[in-house]
């Protein structure tokens, strides 16, 4: 199943080379030159990439309209502004943004993260070392033994949060607040304890974890 992307970029030179690159990476790209008709075009899309500076309706307006029409559609903004520009703070509706000139690999990586985060995963299953994960079914299979790894609700929530941010380091606060839905208090050991039990179930050698990596001083990461 190919993922369809809505890409709005007025600059022809950038638009052609970026949409070619994204097509090469296996995405189906719908490239628009302006924000007009974006809402209609977006209906079959799994993700929208918007330039901030567009002729006519600007990227903010288009993005907000898209978000209103499709609240679940992830939006990635491409900005040619400086980060200190207060207009950038109007980008709250966007799920991510990237400053020009971006590297095409960086754009692809961000798209991947956003798609995974929003459940529109490219693959049905994900293979990590000895694990095969079926996120849609909440199932984790140990490929070596072909046995299902039984996780508790919180354990699975923590694991899938890290999987949704595959390759990204998440801080303890971010994980705790996403899973428990309340503010993290410094010194709280709950998360640490849960991670320890999670590792006992997932890792081949819990003393030397390979799936959930501890990033000292910051948090945890599941590497792709």
């Amino acid at each position: 199943m190919t993922v369809t992307l809505l890409y709005i970029e007025d600059d022809h030179e950038i638009g052609s080379v970026v949409s070619a690159d994204l097509s090469e990476r296996g995405y189906s790209v719908r490239w628009l030159r302006s924000g007009e008709g974006a809402t209609e075009e977006a209906s079959p899309c799994q993700l929208a990439i918007l330039d901030v500076m567009l002729p006519g309706l600007d990227g903010f307006t288009v993005g907000q309209r898209l978000k209103r029409a499709y609240p679940k559609l992830p939006i990635l903004m491409l900005s040619a502004r400086t980060s200190i520009d207060d207009k950038l703070q109007g980008l709250e509706f966007a799920d991510d943004y990237l400053t020009k000139p971006f590297h095409p690999d960086e754009l692809a990586a961000r798209i991947e993260v956003l798609l995974r985060r929003n459940g529109a995963s490219v693959q049905d299953s994900l293979t990590l070392k000895h694990l095969v994960i079926y996120e849609g079914d909440n199932r984790v299979i140990n490929a070596q033994t072909q046995e299902e790894v039984m996780l508790t609700g919180k354990q699975f929530q923590i694991f899938s949060y890290l999987l949704r941010h595959l390759g990204q380091i998440m801080t303890k606060e971010q994980i705790y607040e996403a899973v428990w839905g309340e503010a993290y208090l410094e010194g709280d050991k709950t998360l640490m304890v849960h991670i320890r039990y999670l590792r006992e179930k997932l890792e081949l050698d819990p003393g030397n974890p390979e799936i959930i990596e501890t990033v000292r001083g910051i948090g945890y990461r599941v590497r792709a």
């Binding site: 600059d11 950038i14 970026v18 500076m53 040619a80 520009d85 020009k100 000139p101 095409p104």
Partner: peptide
């Protein structure tokens, strides 16, 4: 804002083509 846009747009093109 315009200056930023005008400088970054050609750089984006160049970077994409380098890729």
């Amino acid at each position: 804002s315009n200056l930023s846009h005008d400088l970054r747009t050609p750089l984006t093109v160049i970077r994409s083509h380098i890729h």
